[in-house]
């Protein structure tokens, strides 16, 4: 049946007068090729983060601190200044930068293993201090880079390589809901959680990220945007099932929405 279909030519820009409305990558992503797995949600989140920087014209004052995870591959692919930190330590590194450059725009990019496992105290202390930085948490509920082991955000019943029959609270404990925790801190000005599992949520992600950036530029204090991302490789599901798995497994526990906003 597909043989009968007529496909449009998509190997070159249109001949008729047309405006470019969305380039392959936003201008702040310099290298489109990456080795992240098919169906990964992290590049989608990073795209949204970079588009928001571009739209708020923050590129000339931004320093981004990267943690360690799959997304670390993007540290070299961006046209914003980057500091590569250790696993879990990005918020304190960002703190040192922001204190010396109070007019700069400072953000971190971390995963759930990085921020919620290894570096939980860092992010909570930064939130409590009201450190005027923005932290982005790419939360997929597994250690993606090492191949799908349980993290502290893995939901009950979720199967990983180290919770083979599903996360059991008696054996593996309960998940940490990082954004909910951060939102309780008096120093946190903006905390929101969203996802990149469909186009609507991607748009919402970008909106939340933009609000977090604006919060920092207004000097309001600590801001955090948690982004639920797909990891079909670490979840052992088909790429096409990733968005639905996120909706059914992560989203019911890590609730999407703004948790703290001015």
């Amino acid at each position: 049946m597909s043989d009968e279909r007529i496909y449009l030519s998509t190997d070159s820009p249109p001949q008729e007068p047309a405006a470019l409305v969305d380039d392959f990558t936003p201008s702040l992503i310099t290298q489109a090729n990456h080795h992240l797995c098919p169906g990964c949600g992290e590049p989608i989140a990073i795209r949204a983060a970079m588009e928001a920087i571009e739209e708020l014209e923050l590129a000339h004052s931004t320093i981004t601190v990267f943690g360690i995870g799959c997304y670390t591959a993007f540290a070299h692919n961006l046209d914003v200044e980057v500091v590569q930190a250790l696993h879990g330590r990005a918020p304190s590194v960002a703190t040192g930068i922001k204190r010396m450059l109070p007019d700069g725009f400072v953000m971190t990019v971390q995963g759930d293993g990085d921020m919620v496992n290894e570096g939980l105290q860092e992010v909570l202390h930064a939130a409590a201090r009201g450190e005027n930085i923005t932290c982005l948490l790419l939360n997929n509920g597994v250690f993606g880079e090492t191949g799908g082991q349980m993290t502290t955000t893995t939901t009950l019943g979720q199967r990983t390589k180290t919770s083979i029959e599903g996360r059991d609270p008696h054996q593996h404990g309960h998940p940490i809901l990082l954004s909910d925790l951060a939102a309780t801190m008096d120093g946190a000005a903006y905390v929101a959680r969203c996802a990149v599992n469909n186009a609507g949520n991607v748009a919402r992600t970008k909106r939340y990220i933009t609000r977090a950036y604006e919060s920092q530029m207004a000097g309001a204090g600590f801001s955090l945007v948690e982004i639920l991302t797909m990891c079909p490789t670490g979840w052992f599901v088909d790429t096409l099932e990733g968005p639905e798995y996120l909706q059914d497994t992560l989203a019911p526990v890590h609730n999407i929405g703004e948790l703290k906003a001015p």
Partner: peptide, 28 residues
Amino acid sequence: ALNGSSGGSGSAKIISPLGGGVEGEEGF
């Protein structure tokens, strides 16, 4: 040193214990 100003220039600075990037490829 970093101060954000090289962002948007096409060759933003990076300070990393993992070293510099590889031309035309992701990563280090």
